[in-house]
């Protein structure tokens, strides 16, 4: 548990300060356009969250994961 306590706040701090960093996928997208300027994506996402909605769905994803881990580790701790 010690490592968790050390790393998680650190992760939070870095993640919070990362607002202006662009995603590696955007850079890859630019590279694709450079390698093949004629390429047009032939399919676009059916649903694309805009603005804060994206943050919401990312948080929900992390929350689901955190819940699953916490619930089952907690359950084991109670038993022992």
């Amino acid at each position: 548990m010690k490592i968790f306590k050390l790393i998680l706040p650190l992760l939070l701090v870095i993640t919070c300060s990362a607002q202006e960093w662009s995603g590696a996928d955007e850079i890859a997208e630019d590279t694709i356009k450079e390698l093949n300027p004629n390429y047009e994506p032939w399919f676009s996402p059916i649903f694309e969250p805009v603005g804060e909605l994206e943050t919401l769905f990312f948080s929900i994803q992390a929350a689901i994961g955190g819940f699953l881990i916490g619930y089952f580790l907690g359950k084991h701790e109670r038993k022992s």
Partner: peptide, 19 residues
């Protein structure tokens, strides 16, 4: 749960971009 949490974390890296 571990896959869900970690793949939701966009972390900054040395190259100045996030992944």
């Amino acid at each position: 749960g571990f896959i869900f949490v970690l793949s939701a974390l966009k972390l900054p890296s040395v190259t100045g971009s996030c992944s």
